[in-house]
Nucleic acid binder design. Structure first.
Lengths: 230, 230
DNA sequence: GTACTGGCCGATACACTGTATCGCTCCGAT
DNA sequence: ATCGGAGCGATACAGTGTATCGGCCAGTAC
């Protein structure tokens, strides 16, 4: 009981805000929302907490560090990566395309992919699907094959997103892109120090992002096929 | 002239510290030294300035932002990547191995590779070497081939370094590694949700990092060979 | 020799970060 | 009715990248 004041005189306790119900899932969703909108740099524990109507330190009841939050985000993204198809080649291609697709919807994924080992349930689940589809392949060959495809996808997606960002940074349309990077390359090539590069960049047909990705993936899958069936 | 005091009475002006001679090269070397020793997170403009015996804001006379410093670091690393060999296959393999080697000496490179377009002089130089060695290949095929190899290397190196760090984080030796991640995977596999994965992880032969990298690279180069010579 | 001026340097400041610490409050068990 | 413990949040700390701006200095024009 508080002092001698009667209830009638005592004011009500200040409206203690109803504690927002919290969960890892909510936290991760909020973080992803921020990252989708404004990039990975926009994800800070304070901003996430604000979005959730919560004080920052509350989050530490659910995660031990920001790194863990990023891990959870990546695993959440893996939930959207569901390889399908029949036969090892189709499944691997599906894995690659689905990963790329996810990175298109969540560009921050390009910054995180491959940055730490993926051991979350969703990542393992998609791994399981892939490995299961490779059942007709020599057991000892499965890991190297999956690792190779994953490596290619990680690198290809990173490069692609990096280029996309660079283009956007120059002003979003292709005109300004050619107006800023084009001239730089022109001037650089004009020095004559990179003749072979200059020739290829100027004379060769330029594939778009889709074609580039698929071409590289086909190289890899062809190489795999040759070895495992041989 | 300062007031009426004679020289003899007037103290010397305070030892104005000799301004440390500065250059992008020095700045980048200092940053790389920090990153080699303690990782990318240890690279801050303040720390770099301290190493150089300089105040932080001075650096902005040489670079416009920290991102530019990171770009310069990456290009400096590219200076150590000099692909050699005869014929397109040897050169591409050399490019891949040299990049991996650089990332072993500068682990931070794994965090930066592929993160932004590489247009620095050293990156272009190694690109020139590679493209020049692909002279006997159809011009339109050069870019996709180089892009594919680069993508694979970026991803493979990232994965490899990420794993190495995870191992180190558990205590550096293999015993503790098995004592921390092993049990996690064991418990996870024990749930029976990932049977195919469990089988492969448990029963298949495990390649070491060198073998894994080379196997994937061979897949890719084989696939390339099949297409360009066919 | 003197006045000016333009450029560089550095101190300070700002807004923000991740997270350690720790007192308070409240709930549930005894 | 009392105690214990857990969780919450305010505060604090050490650090970040960088904008701003006052002042010093070198060089130039007379």
């Amino acid at each position: 009981m508080v002092s001698g004041m009667l209830v009638w005189e005592r004011p009500e306790p200040p409206d203690r805000p109803v504690p927002a119900p919290l969960s890892r899932e909510r936290i991760v969703r909020a973080a992803i929302q921020l990252a989708d909108a404004d990039g990975l740099d926009a994800v800070s524990l304070r901003k996430v907490a604000t979005v959730l109507g919560v004080r920052p330190m509350r989050l530490y009841g659910y995660i031990a560090s920001k790194e863990e939050l990023l891990d959870l985000m990546v695993d959440a993204a893996h939930a959207e990566i569901r390889p399908v198809g029949e036969g090892w080649r189709e499944v691997l291609r599906s894995l690659a395309e689905a990963t790329r697709h996810a990175a298109h919807e969540h560009e921050w994924l390009a910054d995180l992919l491959g940055g730490r080992p993926q051991l979350g349930p969703h990542a393992l689940a998609s791994g399981e699907t892939v490995v299961a589809a490779l059942g007709d392949i020599d057991v000892d060959a499965v890991m190297p094959v999956v690792a190779a495809v994953n490596a290619y996808v990680i690198g290809a997606v990173r490069r692609e997103i990096a280029e996309r960002r660079a283009e956007r940074a120059t002003g979003m349309d292709e005109k300004r892109w050619q107006a800023s990077l084009g001239p730089y390359l022109e001037r650089t090539f004009a020095t004559g120090r990179f003749p072979a590069l200059a020739t290829v960049v100027r004379d060769a047909a330029h594939l778009d992002a889709d074609e580039t990705f698929r071409t590289g993936l086909d190289f890899l899958l062809d190489g795999i096929e040759a070895r495992i069936s041989g």
